[in-house]
Design a protein around this nucleic acid. Sequence first.
RNA 1: UUACUCUUAGCUCAGUGGAAGAGCAUUCGCCUUCUAAGCGAGUGGUCACAGGUUCAAAUCCUGUAGAGUAUACCA
Length: 553
Amino acid sequence: MNKVISLQQDIKDHLKEIVFNLGYNAENLNILLEEPKEKVNGDYSTNLAMLLTKIAKKQPKLIANEIVDRFNKDKYYVSKIDIAGPGFINFYMDNNYLTTVISEIINANENYGKNNQDNPIKINVEFVSANPTGDLHLGHARGAAIGDSLCRILTVAGFVVTREYYVNDAGNQIHNLALSTIARYEQQLGIDTPVPENGYHGTDIIDIAKSLFEKYGDMYKEDSKERYDLFRKYAKEYELEKIKKDLSNFRVEFDIWSSEQKLYDDNRVIKAIEKLAEKGYIYEFEGATWFKSTAFGDDKDRVLRKSDKSLTYLTPDIAYHIDKLERGYDKLINILGADHHGYIPRLKASIECLTGENDKLEALIIQMVRLIKNGEEYKMSKRSGKALTIRDLIEEVGIDAVRYFFAMRSPDSQMDFDIDLATSQSNDNPVYYAQYAHARISSIFRQAEEKNLNYKVSEQYLEVNSDKAYDLLKKLSEFPKFIVEAANKRAPHRITHYIYELASVFHSFYNAEKVINEENIEKTSQLLALVKATQITLKNALELIGVSAPDKM
RNA sequence: UUACUCUUAGCUCAGUGGAAGAGCAUUCGCCUUCUAAGCGAGUGGUCACAGGUUCAAAUCCUGUAGAGUAUACCA
């Protein structure tokens, strides 16, 4: 346990004890020890006196006085206590209470921030899951960045995480992909076959056709089932490989790629209907098979098998989620674009029907990204073939900047991605601010090497005598707390904000204090320890959002 | 029509019961000194509106207005 966190807990316990000794019955009180935003208001602050107003029937300020009188300051590194505003009790800490954090960070190194849980729950995070019918675009990139960051954060927070991509390789989209490929192939042979209306018109399909032509020549000139099956499989794998490569370049890896087709092949799709039927929530109406999802909060019941006996999209998806549940995860998190949010209630309904739990599946909705170019919205469509792909994006803006940009904002805020701004003013991108802090630290250590200083990074940081060093130390100590919060709230952007804050206090410290002082090796050693701890923390934090920590810029 | 999400500084956005925040823009300072992609200071807000709950509401509840998305026996 982090020293700072345990001290906070000790203070809380001490406060509880005081309240008890004062004779107030406050067993159910949730005492908060917060860190005020304004430094004027101390290092910690508690609302305790306000909470007690009802029980004590006194003004909060009077209660606060009683509490403060009984507080043992020396034991808990408190230098001063104030009562402020409506009755907040503000604690000002002794500057040296944090110094143990430094050695803690340096010893933990890349593990600093890592939280070990005794019995961690198993979480499956499904994200991206774009159809293998074309390139990933902007929205997928945002989903990939947030999903990947969330997985990294959950892992560090101590959960057991599986990253999964559901490949829709069985439906109409793939059928259209196959037909489009066939059309482009015939065009290679000089036959004037148009790409179907619902087909894919992107240039990637031409590439696929060309490669098929090179491989097979005019062998598949005639229509046949064999040709259809072969081309369909070939096109799908081509697109999927491209997606895998793009994601990997984007520093996003998956543990499992699940195939919809395989669910059909293993005969598990029909079984999904049977399982729901066993629970008594399946009925026949006008020749179709329905799932009574309204029993679990959906707007209307949903069709699983159409009157022509073919299955809807929902059916294999339910089978897929049954499969995930059977693999033993405690929680399923689906990361979806906002355009699919209407789909969630029916899926949740199926899971609640089967498990009896309504929080087994959690949906994280990612709002839309609007692409702005030349001051106006740039519509994208996979079918028109004009969309900006994840590859274009990385090429124009850079991986670090794209990852940082997407991780910076809350998933549920819609965002405009201004291409002109991102490219022309790329030096103003906040990612450089954070990376620059890391590069500066590396530079300090290079200097220390060059000057051949006989220093060693202190095991203990003995005395904090500057405000800037103290601010830095304090920010370093908060890292584990941010991780837990980001994980529990599914909010990677909290980490990005932490990174910015940490970089900010470091830059401030850097300007105020010269680290290397050849006249005073002892002080230099101590400051180098602080700087080392900053470098470790910054790097670990950047790692969580998939951004590199350069030594030079 | 209904459902979900959003509405906070000129712009882009954090904060989700406890004391209104950051970046950009703008104004003024700081490079002979470990990287100025940096630092310091200033300007800027009835937290969309109206009620309610609470000692306390930007935050929770209800309603209203505006924006986005979705409302298929498509996938």
